[in-house]
Design a protein around this nucleic acid. Sequence first.
DNA 1: AACAATTTCTAAATAAGTTTAGATTTATAT
DNA 2: ATATAAATCTAAACTTATTTAGAAATTGTT
Lengths: 342, 342
Amino acid sequence: MGIKKTLLEDIAKELNVSKTLVSMVINGKGDAYGISKKTQEKVLAKAGEMEYTPNVFARALRTGKSHLIALLVADISNPFYSNIAKYVEKELASKGYNLMICSTDENVDREEKLISLFAEQHMIDGLIIATTNTSGEYFKKERLRNFPIVFIDRYLPDIESNYVVANNYQGSLEITELLIQKGCKNILALNITPSHISSLTERVKGYKDALKKHDISFKDENLLEISFDNIQSDVKEKLTKRLKQGQKIDAIYTLNNHIATACLNVFNEIGFDAKKEGVYFASFDNISLFDFVKPNIISVSQPLEQIGIEAANLALHLIDSKGTDASAFKKIVLPTSIISRD
Amino acid sequence: MGIKKTLLEDIAKELNVSKTLVSMVINGKGDAYGISKKTQEKVLAKAGEMEYTPNVFARALRTGKSHLIALLVADISNPFYSNIAKYVEKELASKGYNLMICSTDENVDREEKLISLFAEQHMIDGLIIATTNTSGEYFKKERLRNFPIVFIDRYLPDIESNYVVANNYQGSLEITELLIQKGCKNILALNITPSHISSLTERVKGYKDALKKHDISFKDENLLEISFDNIQSDVKEKLTKRLKQGQKIDAIYTLNNHIATACLNVFNEIGFDAKKEGVYFASFDNISLFDFVKPNIISVSQPLEQIGIEAANLALHLIDSKGTDASAFKKIVLPTSIISRD
DNA sequence: AACAATTTCTAAATAAGTTTAGATTTATAT
DNA sequence: ATATAAATCTAAACTTATTTAGAAATTGTT
């Protein structure tokens, strides 16, 4: 059943050389170890002929390197993450690394279990993560302090870390200002609670600062905190309530694509026609299908490809320079762009 | 730098027992090997105290099992795949397996390279794949014949295999019939070329059979073959041309979500308003945002969660019964549902 | 030709577990 | 008390590669 896999030793026997030599040649260290050109050629030819591929486990066991990087996200079915994943993978593949994508389901326990499994045991060489954790406590563990970790999308305020994020503050400031320019005074923002997540708090800050900048006073009734556990029903309840009372709204601004979708659903359910009501609809995050959605969505687009590429390369850099410059944390903040759709 | 990882041997030394014993206990084989309850407790307690986690590489090297399954898809950023991925992962996690998701970028070479890396070297215990390959030749390789592979979404006609797919024929038949019921006679279908992919050919067949069933003769001009390499521009060219000549169309039916999106883009570009023109728009595949897209989209929804769960369990079954019933290939075909949106 | 200096290659250790075959220890029977 | 059986436990082999330390072969020098 099944063909026996070719081993280093098989090649060695065929050629009457040691497996040491074969290993050296196969790893491209033939010259470094002074193996003659002729022998190197022989080995490579035979290895090709016998379709040799090294056993990754034996190699990883011996060297401590798996050439495997994990990407942990809250939910791979969220297009924001799946797009980043695509680019991370592409970039890593070009550098000889493989990517393992895992969803944590927004579950901190699962996230920690996966990190423990992958990182602490050195199953992977590096980790790229959009963490669901709210504090940096977990990442302060001795076992993780020297492990190459790149945070994406969100970082934790209470620990120093390497991260690649979009400029959430700036993006949120700009989209809010755009709404203000369009004449909006009462911009209803919808946020997720509990949110210790850096990206969201910065978006809130950008929103508030834009108001301030244009001398519009922020009103509590214009920031709805939506419970993460039941986004859909909570948006329905709070949005309907808000639409009926308080000052008339002239824009609804959702702080991520999740809430945006929930809002669109609620619009359908309660028969709210934003266009007819003269209400602008805006959202942080951009999804390609937003181009065809009714009502028009003004959105903040994050540079997904860039985030993916930068995160991949930062991870590789950390792996290569392990310990070398652990002190200098890299913080990469990338610009967003506004997609207007009027 | 970094704390030394606890090894089996460390626990053994602390307790003055052999590492053999510790290994047995940790793997839950204490009873089977007749280790006394008292000793088992001691070992487990000490292992917990010392935060022992086995080295996955050493274990995989010795046992030949990695508890890792790979999911290969054409493009993880396609919501169809990323949603399936989410459910596959969830199901596998509940059974103690980890999932490695990889995109092949619709590139056969890359697909084969990944399979070779993962499967032939036994880096993974099983493979779930939406193949980009057009023939089964590659999968006939001796090295792969006994490897647990589950095809999803598409299977290859020229090899026997285990697969989990939606009932593409039935779904396509039904949506076409629905359009016919609505009075459509000229239904323009858009397909991808070259398409040896089972799912697409069956959708075409369903479309044609529905016409036949209702005594509508199929016209070549009503099946546009869109080149995979430049979907967007090809849809634009062929669709505009078709709209201008030939009999008036009363429905446009795209055979997957990719073409649907391209069509929507073209509608925008050329200012085609399906509703105004009295043209129905329909598509195989359903994306949650379709609920808000204009024009209304009639779609065939595939049971993503079921596909994911079935594929995961089939893979696990194949792994467990390796060789046992290799002869009996499992072919799972799941029903689709129509989402009407009028 | 003899010895040193290079060049080329190899034996053995190592990574961290699992498993096999067998050794001890304890319990039971006579 | 002794032989036998049963219950516990362990030494060593094994998985497949990489790497270290050193051996063997070749070349150069006088």
